[in-house]
Design a protein around this nucleic acid. Structure first.
Lengths: 327, 327
DNA sequence: ATGAAAGCGCTAACAG
DNA sequence: CTGTTAGCGCTTTCAT
């Protein structure tokens, strides 16, 4: 490549060891020679070879991130926060997308390890004992985001169940006769990690049992159709609690074409508070899961882990109920 | 780390060179020994040390990406496409965000070079001769996306000017008395690279001159206010052509609160066709700039460049006028 | 305070 | 077909 310690050493009439010391403040070194070396290095435009350094001491100053995909605004916001925060630690971020494919997830994790990332932030699609063992075998600090895998890996997120309960209580208090939980990912529970959504369902069930309100769960991907059917079948006042803003948006789009108005003819509430809601009218009621706070916290936790600190295995970040126009 | 070629060599009773050959199909090697080595390597769970390999041969199998930020759905879609495509080449992607900060952009480019990425995809915020020189000094394949820097670096995008002309013609044909080009980034033209928007303006001007329609340009960030003023001031039929979907969405949000209906009380058209438009009603007329195609093409061009192939310095991808409900 | 030498894990020239 | 040797650029004992 370009200028190496060897060049600097030659020019400064010192050994490469001394040059190394000048940069790393390691061991004793004469202040004058140090300054001289630093100055010449700068003049020559010297840049340490990260590969060589990493090969030697095993640190790459990079972390890996594995998430579903980034077209989903939820993950986009997350990645943004992670990148910004990591760079503040002067770390690089290797972003990879598993697209909900478990084999790919496996391969990507392997690759990240190959690239010697010092830690990994993972929003897992896999789950179960075997995957847990595999994660452990990587022998790297790992922080889970959104979907939990096991108590052996720190998890950062909001208290989904509690948030869900609070939302249902709010909906109930607005005089609806019935509340329907719309959560298509539940249909993939047998083959994917949908921890987040399972927790939301738990909260839903707990709250409807408590209030005794009539309820129902739609846990399939043809939810738009099902919702439409429900509304034409019956005439009692119904609210839909969706386990994700995009499901709510899809439903609203469909019902709008049937002249049904959100907040008037039916109630609807989302989850996540993705940024785009700001442009939508009526304003969707939802739960802000502070994805950016979660992401930043995850980076902090990961760095703690990398430094060998003890960390809690479950870290909750504050959520916030957003009271829009649709409930 | 873990298992090395040394271990395998010892166990297989061969030299490390032979082991290396078994993996790289380089030079002659007995098929049996090769299979034996491969088999043992697999059993031992051997993973080549990418750092060492890279240090040796200078190839890291990674590319760098520098874009504004990823909360912007436009860039999110772009990154997604880049990641998927790069992985198909078995390359890793180092994503970094300059947040429209030129110093940061400079630093990030430097860092990517430090990490020995083999090529860079850049959506630049800087521009001008000095920046151009700097880019050249990096001595790496660079592909520009969206904003052009100079003819010395291949640029991938759509023909913004042509698209703009076509859009204005379409608007004109719908019987509007006046057409207003809304392009806030123009106000940053002195300090930022807003090539894309300048091209769009060129197209706008060329088309309105051709048709002779009454026109106006809003090139400041208080565009929402300005638009509102225009509509209350006058009563002729006005269409807004926005240099970005989000500007259009912002305007629609504001005007909706004034009981003005897009497509009826005024016309409006966006640019980009970000995914979220699918959820919006009325459906915004816009121009699909096929960001994913552009991104994929950019990766292809970058790989060509990395392989030392000649590439065209300007590569246009097809755009598409989306005829929604608002014009 | 500085230097010599060894080595991180891999590959490529050159022998044999 | 295979092994020996050297070296990528850096850091780290261990001497001096």
């Amino acid at each position: 490549m370009g200028v190496t310690t060897k060049d600097i050493a030659r020019i400064c009439n010192v050994s490469r060891t001394t040059v190394s010391r000048a940069f790393n403040n390691t061991g004793r070194i004469n202040e004058d020679t140090k300054q001289y070396i630093l100055k010449t290095a700068k003049e020559l435009g010297y840049r340490p070879d990260i590969l060589a350094t990493s090969l030697k001491n095993g640190r790459t100053r990079s972390i890996g991130v594995v998430v579903f995909d980034v077209k989903n605004q939820y993950f986009a916001q997350m990645l943004n926060a992670i990148e910004v925060k990591a760079r503040r630690h002067d770390y690089f971020v290797n972003i990879t997308l598993h697209q909900k494919n478990k084999d790919l997830e496996h391969e990507l994790l392997q690759k990240l390890v190959d690239y010697r990332v010092e830690g990994i932030i993972l929003s897992a699609v896999s789950k179960g004992r075997e995957f847990e063992e595999y994660l452990k075998s990587l022998n790297k600090p790992v922080v889970l985001l959104g979907n939990r895998v096991s108590s052996d890996f720190p998890f950062v997120g909001i208290d989904e169940k509690k948030a869900s309960i609070e939302a249902v209580r709010m909906i109930s208090s607005r005089g609806y006769d019935r509340i329907v939980f719309v959560c298509p990912p539940l249909s993939d529970a047998d083959k994917e990690n949908v921890y987040t959504h399972e927790k939301r369902r738990e909260g839903f069930l707990s709250a409807v049992n408590e209030t005794g309100i009539q309820n129902e769960i739609i846990g399939t991907w043809d939810y738009v159709q099902k919702v439409a059917d429900i509304l034409t079948d019956q005439s009692n006042k119904t609210a839909f609690f969706c386990s994700g803003d995009v499901y709510a948006l899809d439903i609203m789009k469909e019902l709008r074409s049937k002249e049904l108005r959100a907040g008037l003819d039916y109630g609807i509430m989302g989850f996540d508070n993705i940024q785009f809601l700001g442009y939508m009218r009526p304003h969707l009621s939802t739960i802000d899961n502070s994805v950016e706070l979660v992401a930043e916290k995850a980076v902090d936790v990961l760095f703690d882990l990398m430094k060998g600190k003890e960390v809690k295995n479950k870290i909750y970040v504050e959520y916030k109920i957003i009271n829009g126009d649709t409930i």
